[in-house]
Design a binder for these strands. Sequence first.
DNA 1: GGCCTTGTTAACATTTTGTAACAAGATTCT
DNA 2: AGAATCTTGTTACAAAATGTTAACAAGGCC
Lengths: 233, 233
Amino acid sequence: MTPAPHIVVIEDDPVTRTALGGYLEGFGYRVTACAGAEAAEKVLGQETPDLLIVDINLSGKDGLEITREQRARSEVGIILLSGRTDDVDRIVGLELGADDYVCKPFNRRELLARVKNLLRRTAAMRQLSRRMVNFAGFTFDTAARHVTGPDGATIQLTRAEYELLRTFVLNPGIVLSRDRLLASITHRQSLTGTRTVDVMVKRLRAKFGDDPKVSRIFGTSHGEGYVFTAPLS
Amino acid sequence: MTPAPHIVVIEDDPVTRTALGGYLEGFGYRVTACAGAEAAEKVLGQETPDLLIVDINLSGKDGLEITREQRARSEVGIILLSGRTDDVDRIVGLELGADDYVCKPFNRRELLARVKNLLRRTAAMRQLSRRMVNFAGFTFDTAARHVTGPDGATIQLTRAEYELLRTFVLNPGIVLSRDRLLASITHRQSLTGTRTVDVMVKRLRAKFGDDPKVSRIFGTSHGEGYVFTAPLS
DNA sequence: GGCCTTGTTAACATTTTGTAACAAGATTCT
DNA sequence: AGAATCTTGTTACAAAATGTTAACAAGGCC
């Protein structure tokens, strides 16, 4: 079961915005509608959507500017909307890396077809990016089961280390008890009174150059367990 | 050095066909121009191009029919050309899986931008569906089912070895469990407690001169399975 | 300070893997 | 069809990697 694709609509006209959002939601997509560049940047800073639908004529930062910025840092699918049938706008948009350009008034069914096609095209890349987790300069490849350091060096993880790191990354900022952590690395139940987790955390810390005294990644919660404290990006 | 992308243009109007072909060739693409569906099918039967540019209004089998057929058997990029600004044609084309739809008279620069964007999108898929795969100095011919070594010697692969290598190459950098690998060589399910996969991997390693202690190609993920670690090129 | 918790290290036990040898099955050739 | 040959599957065992435990030092908390 793959999650519903997430589409971000950036459109300042409230009528179009609501209509388009509702239409796409009706086809099972998760839609976030933004009225302008500021609201959009807030969303894009926290999430990596699967597709952007951007009006070119936004007040403030316009759609072309957003296209340029997004394309510089991701391969997210981008569809531009425009009220004008202007060749120049269209060509500039496409040359900036937008995947498509649709003129208003657009046919909803046409837009839906384009959305579907583009999501199909970007499926492989989205899968790739979902498998990578970035934090503190490291990149954790959940499929290859290893980590790439800030210097580009690969850090091999043992099975238990992998499971442990995975559990941490899936629960950022949450204190996890030793029992909980132990359950994620071994399949035996509740071996209380064991120091296994401590040793595994130490080994993880060693591989990430994380000092428990000034920990930035794996924090200790005295009497409780451990927390993953690095911000994910 | 990756080979120039191959674009097949299917267009019955000789003027447009020649102009478009020449224009694209000027940007370094390899172009094959076809006057109609018959000529195109001949080409498509022998080669798998990277992109199709198809006129909708062909005499005989039309562009929509070609789109349907191609999309059924490959993920090749498809751009439709049309003389009409007809919503219905456009929507039908897009719903059949065409990636783009451009109306004549089109702006060449716009078409070029669309071609570039689409090739960028399909790059990952083309990489995986290529017949020849290069890695670590070897060339794996997936159709002929053999490998050519750095010294030019051909290495014959048995059926199981071929299936195994194919599975590895289709999932580069991803740890594959023994069950997963076993399923790709035999069709029985989950023969746990068997060393069959280990033995097959050892035989593959032997043919590629890959030492498990300093493995460059077939890595071991202790407790999990094996990974294909050689960079594809 | 006393008590409990955590960090660290090293040794140990267990699991997993690499390899060889061999048996069984499939294919080719005569 | 039968023999020869090649491919595939299985088992056994040594070697390597990993997980676990024990022991002790260091640190936090009352």
